[in-house]
Design a protein around this nucleic acid. Structure first.
Length: 520
RNA sequence: GGCCCCGUCGUCUAGCCAGGUCUAGGACACAGGCCUUUCACGCCUGCAACACGGGUUCAAAUCCCGUCGGGGUCACCA
């Protein structure tokens, strides 16, 4: 038997980080067993702009390297993979359920149902529909319709006995059928609902393992009922714990970002991203720019392998030590029995730690490739990229070293890409290191001449020049270097001073020093 | 509230099924220190958990029962 798993997003316009974790586990399981991973689009709830709402989701998976063997764009033997295009199959299943007595037409009005529900609640008993408006004969159906009622199709759930979900992560879970509702499977307008559609598709696609989040566990009995009523062989089920909010066990939600921002680590992740987005001129709204949504990381310049590795360890572990996995290793080692049962909180700081690890390990040329698009988008580098520019960027990247944690961090070093007369000074640093420090200004004035004569204009020679200079002057290096830094880079923090000077070159350093001195 | 799931450092987790090797291991975060022209990196040190209560046993984080706590779900959403 070939393992076939699926992930079934509804086209909502964004890819939730928790959804990715689920998809990743499905994908890993399929790859591990040499099976197929299928993407099915759950768009039974009429969607206006399918293309626009699906694109970010597919794009997110592509970016993360989670490829699908069947589904949108790639097609497959069971096409179509859009539920909105499979309606007649659901209809056939509904007819079959009706014919076999596993479902019935129901003509209750919403307010009548609400009344029953309220009555049950008042008596503190579990609500179970009375089936009062069940049309189990053609006469009744005609009568209800004559009353102007509109019918739906409901599942006729057994009212006694148990259904056991044999979950691969949780073991056997028992549900009492007396508690189950006669769920609607077809609406008044004839369209079908998720549970029915999902079961039919899973069967027709030959899904062997339904791996999904725990929020679906309590839906499973009714899906098993449908599957059995339709004579399907049951897939195996595995319910993953939910991905929770930072510092809480509540399910992570895109809409609660305001709340998460109270968490310092989440805020740091977000603010860092926003700073980059602003420099890129990106729109910052909770819909388009949100750490709960995968797009965020791509836009800011995270590495997909970092995100995937982080997510892998959210609810799964290999052993007590290993934390970095290549794609091949995760596929090799992944098993469902090492998935945790309890929910795992999204930890922004840990995610960043993975990112830093992977970005640090990236070869220099690849860092340059990652960084270039950001410089272009920020308008700091013009296209087409000239070889000299590429080389210069490579030097900046090298000098920046571990200061670059995500690709977008290159924009922190914009001073190397702006014209000398356009260099912006950090207000506070300029005040503290230049305007407020006459000694430093005097030293800087003198050192300018050394710089004019320094040869070669390279880090080690420059360092020797400065060291020699401070020794002659009988001052400490700290008394001038900050002023030099602010004058040449506009900032109080940055690369190693001598790397920065060398990068700028003699002409630009002198021009910048002159400009700064003129403004003191 | 009913039903279902879960409960080891702040967080992710190892250990639990097959009780002793656990004075509970690792990672992230945090604190202190070192390095240092800034920032970052790096290095060293430290802080910190078996939810609680009963059993069973020579022995329990591990097995059993109960309590408490947290979460999921209860749609003509998916």
């Amino acid at each position: 038997m070939t393992v076939r798993t699926r992930f079934a997003p509804s086209p909502t316009g964004y890819l939730h980080i928790g959804g990715v974790r689920t998809a990743l586990f499905c994908w890993l399981f399929a790859r591990k067993h040499g099976g197929q991973f299928i993407l099915r689009i759950d768009d039974t709830d009429q969607q206006r702009n399918l293309e626009a709402t699906l694109a970010p989701i597919l794009n997110g998976f592509r970016w993360l390297g989670i490829d699908w063997d069947e589904g949108p764009e790639v097609g497959g033997p069971h096409a179509p993979y859009y539920q909105s295009q499979r309606l007649e199959r659901y209809q056939a299943a509904v007819e079959k359920l009706l014919a076999s007595g596993h479902a019935y037409r129901d003509y209750a009005r919403p307010e009548e149902l609400a009344e029953e529900r309220a009555a049950a609640e008042a008596e503190k008993r579990t609500f179970v529909y009375s089936r009062r408006w069940m049309a189990d004969t053609p006469e009744k159906q005609a009568q209800f319709e004559a009353e102007g009622r509109q019918g739906v199709v409901r599942l006729k759930m057994p009212r006694e006995g148990k259904i056991v979900v044999d979950d691969m992560i949780r073991g056997p879970v028992e549900f009492d059928l007396a508690q189950e509702q006669d769920h609607v499977i077809q609406r008044t307008d004839g369209t079908c609902l998720y549970h029915l559609a999902s079961v039919v598709d899973d069967h027709e696609f030959g899904i062997t393992h339904v791996i999904r989040a725990e929020e679906h566990l309590s839906n499973t009995p009714r899906q098993i009922f449908i599957a059995q009523a339709l004579g399907y062989e049951l897939p195996r089920f595995a319910h993953l714990p939910v991905v929770a909010e930072p510092g809480s066990k509540t399910k992570l939600s895109k809409r609660k970002i305001a709340k998460y921002l109270k968490n310092p680590e989440f805020k740091q992740l977000y603010d860092h991203g926003c700073a980059i987005a602003r420099r890129l001129g990106l729109e910052i709204s909770d819909d388009t720019f949100n750490p709960v949504v995968v797009d965020f990381y791509e836009q800011v310049g995270y590495l997909p392998e970092a995100i995937v590795n982080y997510l892998l360890l959210l609810g799964w572990s290999y052993d007590d030590k290993t934390e970095f996995f290549t794609r091949e290793e995760m596929i090799e080692h992944f098993t469902l029995d090492r998935v945790n049962k309890s929910s795992a909180s999204f930890d922004p700081a840990k995610l960043r730690a993975f990112q830093e690890h992977y970005f640090r390990a990236l070869p220099a040329e690849q860092k340059v490739e990652k960084v270039l698009p950001f410089l272009v988008k920020a308008g700091l580098v013009a296209e087409p990229i000239q070889p000299e520019t590429q080389q210069f960027v490579a030097r900046v990247v090298e000098a920046a070293g571990d200061r670059l944690k995500v690709a977008g961090d290159i924009l922190d070093f914009d001073e190397f890409f702006v014209a000398d007369d356009a260099l912006a000074y950090d207000e506070k640093d300029f005040e503290k290191r230049l305007r407020g420090d006459q000694t430093a200004v005097g030293l800087l004035r003198q050192f300018r001449e050394r710089l004019a004569a320094a040869e070669p204009f390279e880090p080690s020679a420059l360092e020797a020049a400065l060291k020699g200079f401070v020794e002659e002057q009988g001052v400490k290096i700290g008394q001038i270097i900050h002023a030099l830094r602010v004058a040449t880079t506009g900032k109080g923090v940055g690369l190693g001073m001598f790397d920065a000077l060398a990068l700028l070159g003699r002409e630009r350093c002198l021009a910048r020093i002159d400009r700064a001195l003129a403004q003191v």
